[in-house]
């Protein structure tokens, strides 16, 4: 069971969503993410997992229900630097974009600085530390487009880490990443969760792999089924085609 003294970071209350006047993509989803959790958000293609992630991040507004961050309604929540976001973009990236690894990671500090403010030495230092954490420091002066898919993914994680977030929300890329890269990606996440007690929400289609390292699993297939014990999810959700 959840330790009730743990602070809830993210709470979704009975949220539903539909695009335009179409049928519902997700229905009546309630979900709480506590500090230190490593939640695998698993579902088949079209099951609504990316939609749910976007609702949580405020990129989509639910047709009904509530979203709360750190106990505050999402509409009033302003401290977005407390949340790190890693999109699928890492692998489908514009190869002409002129930016070095370091320039990309420093963007992660922008959320902590308002208009008019330039980045400071502290920001540069934090960006360096974030690169160290994902073992990419030696690539700092390389162009982001010259890196492999897995390396880009690490840089995008470093960008999210640079804002010193309390929770990392990741949308796992489904294409263009090989098995070995994938394994390294999971190892890095485990490291961040266990060593730094960083809260993680990982959107993925691969139930079997995630269940082996996440602390909790939620299956989203329009409605949500939550499992305190990830291994129980494997047993009960065998119909989920995890190879799609």
């Amino acid at each position: 069971m959840h330790d009730l003294t743990k602070e809830p970071l993210l709470r979704l209350l009975d949220t539903s969503f539909s695009y335009g006047s179409g049928s519902e993509v997700i229905h009546g989803v309630s979900l709480t993410v506590h500090k230190g959790d490593y939640l695998g958000l698993i579902g088949p293609n079209g099951g609504g997992k990316t939609t749910l992630l976007k609702i949580a991040l405020g990129l989509l507004i639910p047709t009904s229900g509530k979203v709360e961050w750190f106990g505050k309604d999402i509409q009033k929540f302003k401290e977005w630097y407390r949340i790190g976001y890693v999109s699928q973009k890492a692998t489908e990236f514009d190869s002409l974009f002129p930016a070095t690894v370091e320039e990309v990671v420093r963007m992660g500090r922008y959320a902590r600085r308002g208009f008019f403010n330039r980045i400071t030495d502290i920001d540069r230092q934090k960006a360096t530390e974030a690169l160290q954490e994902v073992h990419m420091l030696e690539y700092r002066d390389r162009r982001i487009s010259d890196l492999s898919g897995g390396q880009k993914q690490r840089v995008f994680i470093a960008r999210a880490l640079a804002s010193e977030p309390e929770i990392l929300m990741l949308d796992e890329p489904t294409t263009g990443v090989d098995q070995e890269t994938q394994t390294q990606f999971y190892e890095l996440l485990k490291e961040l969760n266990e060593r730094q007690n960083l809260t993680l929400v990982l959107v993925s289609h691969d139930l079997e792999r995630i269940a082996k390292q996440a602390t909790h699993v939620a299956i989203i297939e329009k409605t949500l089924r939550y499992y305190e014990n990830p291994l129980e999810a494997i047993e009960k959700e065998q119909h989920i085609d995890h190879h799609n």
Partner: peptide, 22 residues
């Protein structure tokens, strides 16, 4: 000059920039 970092972030990754509160 004033909006440099916001312009850069939005050009690079509009969605992440939005999540970052820009």
């Amino acid at each position: 000059y004033v909006a440099y970092k916001e312009l850069l972030y939005v050009s690079f990754d509009e969605e992440a920039a939005q999540v970052a509160g820009i």
